[in-house]
Design a protein around this nucleic acid. Structure first.
Lengths: 137, 137
DNA sequence: TATAATCTCTCTAGCAACTATAGCTTCAAG
DNA sequence: CTTGAAGCTATAGTTGCTAGAGAGATTATA
């Protein structure tokens, strides 16, 4: 049996986060030692690894909850799992696109400053005056 | 004089957010009408536009606070303004890079599923088994 | 076996940047 | 003068954790 610290080291999920996941119902309440400390088996280790992996990929808790639910029913169609992953991919791409627009604008702004005083600083000026922007972010 | 609703419409900042910014000290407490409602002048309109623009570019409240402080001192050097902008650009780029790695992995996972049941769904399998990943995200 | 060092427990609060709700008051148009 | 929209304060909720306090449990060493 693994203590919460063991589980944490093996998965890379911090101890308070493990307890948080338990509270959120992502993992079920484990057995306890005689002194009331959590004791885990490899079942929970695998489940937590799944969660960690999904979080590292940026999936939201709710999506992970759905995926865990799905993975418990091996005989069901996997359309929903694919849909969740595809939606997350689309969101990720949308975020990239948005950040790239910001990147371009920030680059333009930082390159544009050749002054040395705030009064003619292009950074400050750009923020004050949206009309200076190339892009309708 | 502008009501908080006028200010909101002109800047695109929602009313509760305007009040939140006031609470956070980004904008100072404005004059009040005889009935205790907020009344703004164009000074506050410009300041809030600055804030909105900076937020749209992804700058954090603390960074904006610094920039506002700087913009109040036109005769000071603008090194700090440039530094803040450059740091934010670097952070933005780092986030893009990370998201692109996730995108690649998500794409691989979603394309990889040719099963129709959960039991042989590559999405679920990938999440269960990190070793299937190409990239050490 | 005693004791010290480390771990774990629960509970509460805090983070960022808002957003939502409730219950009340004020404003502006007709 | 009435009515409906807009505004007020205060509090709580959002997401996904993280930090701290103060107590109890476990383990390693003497």
């Amino acid at each position: 049996m693994l203590s919460i610290g063991d589980l944490s080291r093996k998965t890379g999920v911090k101890i308070p986060t493990v307890r948080y996941y338990e509270q959120m119902g992502l993992i079920s309440a484990p057995e306890r030692s005689s002194g009331n400390q959590r004791r885990y088996s490899t079942v929970e280790l695998e489940r937590l690894s799944f969660i960690k992996h999904a979080r590292d990929l940026g999936l939201k808790i709710d999506a992970i909850r759905e995926l865990l639910e799905l993975s418990a029913h091996p005989d069901q169609p996997c359309d929903n799992a694919n849909r969740i992953a595809a939606e997350h991919l689309a969101e990720t791409r949308a975020r990239i696109t948005k950040l790239q627009r910001l990147e371009a604008e920030l680059l333009r702004i930082t390159k544009g400053c050749h002054g040395d005083k705030i009064e003619n600083c292009y950074v400050i000026e750009s923020l004050s005056n949206h009309a200076l922007c190339k892009d309708g972010h």
